[in-house]
Every structure is written in C-alpha cells, then in structure tokens.
Amino acid sequence: MDLDLVTSILAIATFAGASLVLATIGEIFTERVGILNLGVEGMMIMGAVTGFATAYRTNNVWLGVVVAGIVGGLMALVHAFATITLRADQIVSGLAITLLGTGLASFLGQVIGPDGGPLVGLTGPKFTKWPIPGLSSLPLVGEGFFNQDPIVYSLFVVVPVSWYFLYKTRPGLYLRAVGESASTSDAVGVSVFGRRYGYTVLGGVMAGVAGSHLSLSYTPGWTENLTGGRGWIVIALVIFATWNPARAVVGALLFGGVNAIQFRLQAEGTNLPASILNMSPYILTVLVLILITRTDKLRQTIGAPAGLGIPYHREERE
C-alpha cells in the first residue's frame, strides 16, 4: 500500500466515522449511567430527516443540526420516561423507539418536503469542508484530520472533554457510580433519577446530531433508510470501546474505515474476500463480549457498568 492510499483511506474513515463517534459517545454516557438505549438507530434516522428538512427550509445547516439534536433528545426523553419512571424493560422500549423512529422518518420524508411533498431527491444546503491552512497539507493525517467539516472538527473537543469528564471529574464519578450501583449511589445521596434522565437525553441529542451529519454532510440529502443500520453499529461500538470515549474513536475509525478499505482494495483489483474484512470489527466485538463476561475482575478493569439495564426502584432496594 502506498502512502496516498493510506492517506485517502484515513480521510474516508474519519469522515465516515464521525457520526459513529458522536452517537457512540452519547450511548456511552447513557449506558454508563445504567440505561441501555437500543433506540439509537431510530434517533439517528429521525435526526437525519428532521435535520435535512430544517436545513432545506431555512437554508441554514446549523439550524438543521440543532433541530436534529432536539428531536433526538425528545425521543430519548420518551425512553427515559418509560424505563426510569415507569421502569419498563429497557430492551423493549429501545426497540420500540427504533421501530417508531424508522417508520416516522419514512413517513415524514414523504410529507415534509416543499408543499407537503416528499423530501427524497431534493438538493439542499450541506456542510462544506473547511481545510485548515498549513495543517491540511500535512502528509498522511492532513487530509483526514484537517480537511473536514465543522462537525468532524467538533470531535477534537467532544472526545477529550467526554473522557476527562467521565474519569477525572466528580460529576463523572457520580455518573459512573449510578451505573455501577444505583442503590449505593442513592444511599450516599447521589441523585439516581435526575442523572439517569439527564444522560439518557444527552445520549439522544448526540445520536440526533450524528444522524444530521449523515444527511447534511456525508451523504447530503434524504433517502429512506439513510442510516443503513449505523445505529446498531453504535451499540456494538460501545462494547468494542469498552464504554470508554477515547477507545470509541479507534473503534469508529475501524468500523467506518473498513468499508472504504475493502472497496479501495477491490477497485485496485486485489482479490481479498470483502466479507472477511467487513465482519472483522464484529468479530472483535464478540471477543470483547466474551472476555468481559468470563471474569468479574476483567469486567471491572475494563469498566463495564454493572448496573446496566437494571431499573432502580427505591422501595425495592436489595
């Protein structure tokens, strides 16, 4: 592989991986506080359709991002209400939200275009790339890291801040404590309900924004099934990243880049079985899953939240 090929693969992996990083870090916050949200796919696709529709009507991509975030947050609020207040099964509620989101997005895509018509096939405003002078011409990483759109650049802040917040600050410690053992946290006076609501909604906002990155930048425009299952990749990515925002970046580059890599190899005429490359990130995810369920010690070292998926009920404390 020559240098140009590596450069361009890195550029595509970053661009393709950006929405994955955002949604994954959002889901890490949600799962770290003990709530499993399988509604990511539904929130991403709703973010994609509402973000594009808003940008199309207002001719302002930033408004599109804001609306996408609000929509994602509102959907997460439904999940939070169902699972935290009503203590419904988190898996069922999450799946219902994904089904609702994909259905509603298809429906909206047919009626919120101009004159109540479809959005499909319209060309609207989109993010353009902002090359950073000097840095963007660096060999190898210049194209991938410094010739991107503003959403990708925002990750330079979001990723380190999320990591620092989670591991180095007191609110981050409380967050993780709630996900580890809600009853213990409650006993020492750390609010369980408020935190669970807050971080679930935050996760939804990030998923919505991630969806709008697809419809406003990566594949500008709206087509049904635009997210193509990327919300499910996010669920796998959280495990792959072992609930750590920094490792989520590595994972997202890998998951995002693997298609680009195998397509490049195909286009260059290399006869490598594409399916093997395509499934490699998932094999690694399964491996991580096996490892963390094997031993409690390893689980603790890695930091999988012990209280994930368990509803908390004050009066039924164990």
Partner: peptide, 27 residues
C-alpha cells in the same frame, strides 16, 4: 471496467463509498 461489490442492493453511504473508491482508482 473495474467492479466493486457492495453486497447490498440499498445502502446509500456504502454505495457512495464504493463509487469513491473507484474514482480514486482512476475511473
């Protein structure tokens, strides 16, 4: 003629990536 297989009938981002790979290879 260079062919890239996507293994899907309908996946917007994947199809875009496949076309970009071909363009990068000189098509």
């Amino acid at each position: 003629v260079r062919v890239v297989w996507t293994n899907t009938w309908f996946d917007p981002p994947t199809e875009k990536e496949a076309a970009e790979a071909l363009l990068a290879a000189g098509a």
